[in-house]
């Protein structure tokens, strides 16, 4: 076997992606903490920190394009760089959604608290679980873990729909003064559900990376 300098470069790309994953994961924890604890300083930290994540996304993108140009990779090398680029964007979008949640948390912290719907922490726990699961599946190149993330997605959709329904029925139609706060929570549920979608996309990318099977838009086999 020839020792390839390219392997070191791929390893470097992998490390950068892991760092991006941990930054993105941290932003979710903090945004949800800020929401739970009505902590506007923490929410502000999440918002301010996003610029670093954006910059890091660009750094990874530049490095990936450099490797494509320099190495013209094939087979598993090609699949790794191509999926790495997609995972990079998914992670950045997850961080953007954390920022959106942080904005809502900051607004909500200025208003009297609404009695919390149990479904919101359920959905935020699920979002954390799915994002973490998708990142772990990438770290370990683990097909089963990736499939498990995809299986959880319908639960996220159901929770989001349930939250929307309850906000309308239990707050908005009963007391118009709750509408601004209900709308904020409505959006939070939306953002959390989108996070779950991005976790699912990462899991799909991992499946492609490991098995070269593209399962986007066709989950029947996985969900069997």
């Amino acid at each position: 076997m020839i020792e390839r300098h390219f392997d070191e470069e791929l390893q470097k790309l992998n490390s950068k992606l892991l760092k991006m994953a941990s930054l993105s994961e941290e932003s979710i924890y903090l945004a949800i903490e800020a929401l739970k604890n009505r902590n506007k300083e923490l929410a502000q930290n999440v918002i301010d920190n996003d610029i670093k994540i954006d910059e890091f996304e660009l750094e990874i993108e530049d490095y990936s394009i450099e490797l494509l140009a320099k190495r013209q990779p094939l087979a598993s090398d090609l699949r790794f760089i191509a999926t790495g680029m997609r995972i990079n964007s998914e992670l950045e979008r997850i961080a953007d959604l954390s920022v959106n949640i942080a904005h809502r948390a900051r607004d909500l912290s200025k208003e009297p608290a609404l009695k919390v719907l149990v479904h919101i922490p359920m959905l935020s726990d699920l979002a954390i679980k799915m994002v973490k699961g998708s990142i772990d599946s990438f770290v370990n190149r683990d097909l089963d873990a990736a499939k498990n993330v995809i299986k959880l997605d319908s639960e996220a959709n159901n929770l989001r729909t349930e939250i929307h329904k309850k906000l309308v029925e239990e707050y908005m139609t009963k007391d118009v003064t709750t509408i601004p706060r209900s709308l904020s929570l409505f959006l939070v549920a939306q953002h959390l559900e989108r996070m779950c979608d991005h976790a699912k996309y990462i899991a799909e990318d991992v499946i492609y990376l490991v098995s070269a099977k593209n399962v986007k838009h066709k989950h029947e086999e996985i969900l069997k």
Binding site: R4, F6, P73, L74, A75
Partner: peptide, 15 residues
């Protein structure tokens, strides 16, 4: 060139 079936092919085309 994206997913060779044989491990030897993979090793060769990736250098």
């Amino acid at each position: 060139f994206t997913n060779p079936e044989n491990k030897i092919t993979e090793d060769y085309i990736t250098g």
